[in-house]
Amino acid sequence: MAAAAAAGAGPEMVRGQVFDVGPRYTNLSYIGEGAYGMVCSAYDNVNKVRVAIKKISPFEHQTYCQRTLREIKILLRFRHENIIGINDIIRAPTIEQMKDVYIVQDLMETDLYKLLKTQHLSNDHICYFLYQILRGLKYIHSANVLHRDLKPSNLLLNTTCDLKICDFGLARVADPDHDHTGFLTEYVATRWYRAPEIMLNSKGYTKSIDIWSVGCILAEMLSNRPIFPGKHYLDQLNHILGILGSPSQEDLNCIINLKARNYLLSLPHKNKVPWNRLFPNADSKALDLLDKMLTFNPHKRIEVEQALAHPYLEQYYDPSDEPIAEAPFKFDMELDDLPKEKLKELIFEETARFQPGYRS
């Protein structure tokens, strides 16, 4: 834990890192770190609560700039109880001085990944967590956004079992017609939660990839272990087919990539493993919904509104309290091709509203 900075004593240090967030945020305490930044909790002297502050230093890398800009653009436009918001952003007053960006968010005690390492969940908890994931996802999908990296560590939890989806750095506007060349190379989302079509096709992607990830998360809540822990690309596919069985001819016809289709045709026939054999203690309604989410063919996979209306979630289902976005989200430009200098300018502009004396 960093010592509390005395008023006016300059930035606090946390594990050798400068955290320049005073005077409003003090009493910093280390939480963890990701690929390009550290997260601390801090005391907000204005709202009198502890908050989470993520320090991001992305400006050396085009990919990190892209992810940072995506996350900020999306989260500043989203407003939903099951999606983490941005409360404040701290950065230098000029673009030349801006080396880091500090993002202030609600402090959540833990995440689903940490929880599943230590606790076996009751059916009631599984049901409530799944409902909140789908409630947040309904809003995301209504904005025409794909999260693309749903996994237990991106689901934040607090002691009252509130759940918030975080990390929109890989999110995209849904565009089933656009052929994202190089899709697989830039697709760094965790393999275990990846839909089979991501490994088999490169053309376009749809909201059904997020539903697949939610199915993987439900299976993990039922058993405290990942359902498809593939060691590499082909191993991942083999794990999936080992449980779902061989795809039907109709399902194979959806695979545009001939090499991928021929690979699947070359494999020995596998039978589907019954879900109640894998999860003998699970609620039968939970397994019915799991089956509809972990469907090989993305066109037959359940959609988020149908999933919310499934009998497993009937005690929570309330369409009048499951809000959607006001308007579909649009990125003005494809960020993939922009140089990091341009992305830095866009991050600077996007964060201006939090600067003292800002006038829109």
Rank of each mutant, 00 (worst) to 15 (best):
A3M: 11
A3F: 04
A3G: 01
A5R: 14
A5S: 14
A5M: 12
A6F: 00
A6T: 13
A7E: 05
P11R: 14
P11N: 11
E12N: 11
E12C: 11
M13N: 10
R15H: 09
R15L: 14
R15E: 05
G16R: 14
G16C: 06
Q17A: 10
V18T: 02
D20I: 11
V21L: 14
G22A: 10
G22V: 15
P23A: 03
P23D: 01
Y25Q: 10
T26Q: 12
N27M: 08
L28P: 09
S29C: 14
Y30W: 02
Y30F: 14
I31M: 06
E33A: 03
A35M: 11
Y36T: 07
G37H: 12
M38P: 12
M38I: 15
C40P: 00
C40E: 03
C40S: 14
C40Q: 06
A42C: 04
Y43D: 05
Y43S: 07
N45P: 03
N45I: 15
N45K: 14
N47F: 12
V49N: 05
R50A: 11
R50N: 02
R50F: 05
V51A: 01
V51H: 02
A52T: 11
I53A: 00
K55L: 10
K55D: 08
K55M: 13
K55P: 06
K55W: 12
I56P: 08
I56C: 06
S57C: 05
F59S: 13
Q62S: 03
Y64T: 08
Q66G: 05
R67P: 03
R67F: 06
R67I: 00
T68L: 04
T68K: 04
T68A: 15
L69E: 05
R70C: 14
R70W: 03
R70V: 06
R70D: 03
R70P: 00
E71C: 02
I72A: 01
I72R: 08
L75K: 00
L75R: 01
L76V: 00
L76R: 01
R77P: 05
R77N: 06
F78W: 08
R79L: 11
R79W: 09
R79S: 14
H80V: 03
I84G: 02
I84D: 02
I84M: 02
I84L: 04
G85Q: 08
I86Y: 02
I86V: 01
I86H: 04
N87R: 02
D88C: 02
I89E: 05
I90Q: 00
I90C: 02
A92V: 08
P93K: 07
P93Q: 15
T94R: 13
I95P: 02
I95F: 15
E96I: 04
Q97M: 03
Q97K: 13
M98K: 15
M98Q: 01
D100E: 14
D100N: 14
D100G: 00
V101F: 08
V101P: 03
V101K: 10
Y102C: 12
I103E: 06
V104H: 04
Q105L: 13
D106V: 11
L107G: 09
E109M: 08
T110M: 10
T110A: 12
D111E: 12
L112C: 02
Y113A: 09
K114L: 13
L115E: 03
L115D: 03
L116Q: 14
K117Y: 07
K117A: 12
Q119D: 03
L121Y: 11
L121D: 11
L121A: 07
S122R: 15
D124V: 14
H125R: 14
I126L: 10
I126F: 14
I126Q: 11
C127L: 11
C127H: 03
Y128D: 05
F129V: 07
F129C: 05
F129K: 08
Y131N: 15
Q132W: 01
L134W: 07
L134M: 15
L134D: 09
R135K: 10
G136E: 12
L137R: 06
K138Q: 13
Y139G: 11
Y139C: 13
Y139V: 13
I140G: 06
H141P: 13
A143Y: 06
A143C: 12
A143F: 08
A143G: 07
L146C: 03
L146A: 08
H147T: 03
H147Y: 12
K151W: 09
S153R: 14
L155K: 01
L156A: 09
N158R: 12
N158T: 12
T160F: 11
C161R: 09
C161E: 12
D162I: 00
D162L: 03
L163E: 03
L163I: 02
K164T: 06
I165W: 10
I165G: 08
D167Y: 15
D167N: 15
G169L: 05
L170C: 04
A171S: 14
A171K: 09
R172H: 01
A174G: 04
A174N: 07
P176I: 07
H178G: 08
H178L: 15
D179T: 09
T181L: 11
G182W: 15
L184F: 12
L184K: 08
W192G: 13
Y193H: 12
Y193R: 13
R194I: 15
A195L: 03
P196T: 15
M199W: 02
L200H: 08
N201L: 07
N201Q: 07
S202D: 09
S202Y: 12
S202N: 12
K203H: 10
K203D: 10
K203E: 14
G204F: 08
Y205T: 10
Y205L: 12
T206N: 13
K207F: 11
I209E: 12
D210W: 07
I211D: 12
S213A: 08
V214G: 12
V214M: 13
G215R: 14
C216K: 10
A219F: 12
A219M: 13
E220D: 14
M221N: 01
L222G: 13
S223V: 13
S223W: 13
R225P: 02
I227T: 01
F228E: 01
F228S: 09
G230S: 12
G230L: 00
K231L: 05
K231G: 08
L234Y: 12
L234C: 12
L234R: 06
L237G: 11
L237S: 08
N238P: 10
N238W: 11
H239N: 15
I240W: 05
I240C: 06
I240P: 04
L241I: 11
I243K: 01
L244E: 04
G245E: 08
S246H: 00
S248P: 09
Q249P: 06
Q249W: 05
D251R: 07
L252Q: 14
N253E: 13
I255D: 07
I256H: 10
N257E: 12
N257V: 10
L258D: 07
K259V: 03
K259R: 11
R261K: 10
R261T: 11
N262F: 02
Y263M: 11
L264S: 04
L265N: 06
S266M: 04
S266P: 00
P268D: 03
H269A: 01
K270I: 06
K272W: 08
V273M: 09
P274T: 14
W275C: 15
N276C: 06
N276A: 11
L278Q: 15
F279D: 00
F279P: 00
F279I: 15
A282T: 11
A282F: 00
S284D: 06
K285R: 13
K285F: 10
A286T: 13
L289S: 09
L289I: 07
L290E: 11
K292V: 02
K292Q: 05
L294W: 02
F296Y: 14
F296K: 05
F296L: 15
F296R: 09
N297K: 12
P298Y: 00
H299I: 09
H299E: 13
H299A: 05
R301H: 08
R301Q: 06
I302L: 13
I302N: 15
E303W: 04
V304N: 01
V304T: 03
V304H: 06
E305V: 14
Q306N: 00
A307T: 10
A307L: 01
L308F: 04
A309D: 07
P311V: 05
Y312H: 03
Y312C: 09
L313N: 05
E314F: 01
Q315R: 07
Y317W: 00
P319Y: 06
S320E: 10
E322V: 13
E322F: 02
P323F: 00
P323T: 13
P323S: 10
I324V: 05
I324P: 00
A325K: 02
E326M: 06
A327C: 03
P328K: 07
F329D: 04
K330R: 10
K330G: 07
D332E: 14
D332R: 06
E334M: 03
E334G: 03
L335W: 09
L335K: 09
L335H: 10
D336Q: 05
D337G: 00
D337I: 06
D337N: 15
D337T: 05
D337Y: 15
L338I: 07
K340E: 13
K342A: 07
K344V: 10
K344L: 04
E345Q: 06
E345P: 01
L346F: 00
I347E: 13
I347V: 07
F348E: 13
E349T: 01
E350T: 00
T351S: 15
R353F: 05
R353T: 06
Y358M: 12
Y358K: 13
Y358L: 13
